[in-house]
Amino acid sequence: MSIKKFIESVKASLNLNKFEQKGKKKAIKRLLQKLESRKEILAKIHKKKLKKKDLKELREEQEIVDLQIKKGKKLLDELDG
């Protein structure tokens, strides 16, 4: 067995690669929580009371938040997988 392979096997047996992943997963979960609560706040805004310009901005923000939640969840699935 070469030294590189030996090092890799030790890393795998001690689960050392998971260190960084765990930190990343926690960070995504925290960000997702914030984005979800922002989504809820945006959904509660009365659209009828808004001007056309503000309504456009609201829709745009909702779209971005949705996209980012989707990306975050996908990333989380990849890390879990």
Binding site: G23, K24, K26, A27, I28, R30, L31, I64, L67, Q68, K71, G72, L75
Partner: peptide, 12 residues
């Protein structure tokens, strides 16, 4: 910050 780790993957 956490965002530094995530921005590449989460940003548009």
């Amino acid at each position: 910050s956490d965002l530094k780790k995530l921005h590449v993957d989460m940003g548009i």
